[in-house]
Every structure is written in C-alpha cells, then in structure tokens.
Simulated scan of single mutants.
Amino acid sequence: MKKTVMVIGYGNDLRSDDGIGQWIANEIASWHLPSVESVAVHQLTPDLVDSLASVDLAIFVDACLPVENFDVQVQSLLPACDIDSNVHTGDPRSLLALTEAIHGNFPVAWWVTIPGMNFEVGDRFSRTMEAGKAIALVKIVQILDKVNNFWVESRAVA
C-alpha cells in the first residue's frame, strides 16, 4: 500500500519566476506517478482543504525572494497556531490549520521554496530560477523516495 501524495505548486505564471510552483506541479503531473496527485494553482484557497484531508503527504512548492543565500529550501510544516482567514496570501500553514479544523486531521507536509530574481510581468525564468527548478525537482523526488521507502519497509516489518 503506497502513501498518497498531493503536490501543490502555486504562484502567478504571468510574473516570471513567480510561476515556478505551477511549472513544478505540471512537470510532476507529466510523470504520471501512481498515488501522486499534482495540482497547479494561482494561489492557495480553501477549496483545497478536502483534497488535503484525504492524502498522507502534501508538498507545497512556491517561489520566494532570496534571503541570505540562493538555495532551494525544504522545510517541514505544521498547521499555523491560529487559522488565518486570509488563506489566499500563500501560507500553506494556514491551509493545513483549516484542514485540521474542518476534518480533524492534516497530512504530513513539506514546503519547497525556490529563490527567484525576476517577478516582473513575463513568462521566462531567470537564470537563478532555472538552476533552482532542477534542484527543487531532485529534492521533491528525494522526499517521495524517502516516504515510499519508509512505507514499504514498515509494511514489510508488520
């Protein structure tokens, strides 16, 4: 029995690097992985809650401004302490909190952020984003492998 996974790539695909989340989600969807649903959305909205409640793992993917370095960041997520009524601002923690409030559960979740340089109107990624998208895909595959290997090993022991 494999774990079910939902990859949610979000951002504005008409604002250059901001569209990376949707690009990643569409790329993963093209792989036709069993037990993996991949959705590309403009922003995080409450209509995703029912889907999140029915999966074991959620991977959120978004662009970010570079902070200290230009590394792709992967962090585990827990629901926000309080539900932000403004879920569309792009914080997956609020969406997880809403999922938990409505359904009583939420999936294990990871947030993959890829630093970008160009958020102007356009449809081309900067060089920074081009490098980051390959790294992000590798990191997402590592998460999927780790989760599926753990699931297979734990079933074999039981």
Rank of each mutant, 00 (worst) to 15 (best):
V67E: 10
A136C: 12
N69F: 02
V41Y: 07
R15Y: 05
H103N: 02
G104P: 03
K133Y: 03
L137I: 09
G19C: 00
G9D: 04
D123Q: 05
L33F: 15
F70N: 08
V55R: 11
V112F: 07
A25M: 08
S38D: 06
K2S: 11
A134Y: 06
S85V: 10
V108H: 06
G19M: 04
I24E: 01
L65D: 11
T45E: 03
R127N: 11
L77V: 05
V87K: 00
D71V: 07
R93C: 10
E153G: 07
V108Y: 05
L95K: 01
L96H: 02
M1V: 10
Q142L: 14
V61C: 15
D62L: 08
L65H: 07
K2R: 12
A29D: 13
V5G: 06
Q142G: 13
A134I: 04
V121N: 06
S76I: 06
M6P: 09
L77E: 11
L77P: 09
S35H: 14
Q43H: 13
L98K: 03
D62M: 07
D18K: 03
V5E: 03
H88W: 06
V39N: 14
W151E: 15
T89A: 12
L57H: 13
V108E: 08
D91Q: 13
D47I: 08
D145P: 00
S16D: 00
I28Q: 01
W23R: 08
E153N: 02
V49R: 07
G122M: 00
D91S: 08
W151Q: 15
V49H: 06
D145L: 04
F70T: 13
R93D: 12
P66A: 13
G90L: 13
G132M: 04
N86H: 10
A109D: 03
F125K: 02
S54F: 04
I143Y: 05
I20Y: 09
T128D: 02
S94A: 14
L144R: 06
K3M: 05
P92W: 15
R155Y: 14
G19F: 01
I28D: 00
S85T: 13
P79L: 07
R15C: 05
D145S: 06
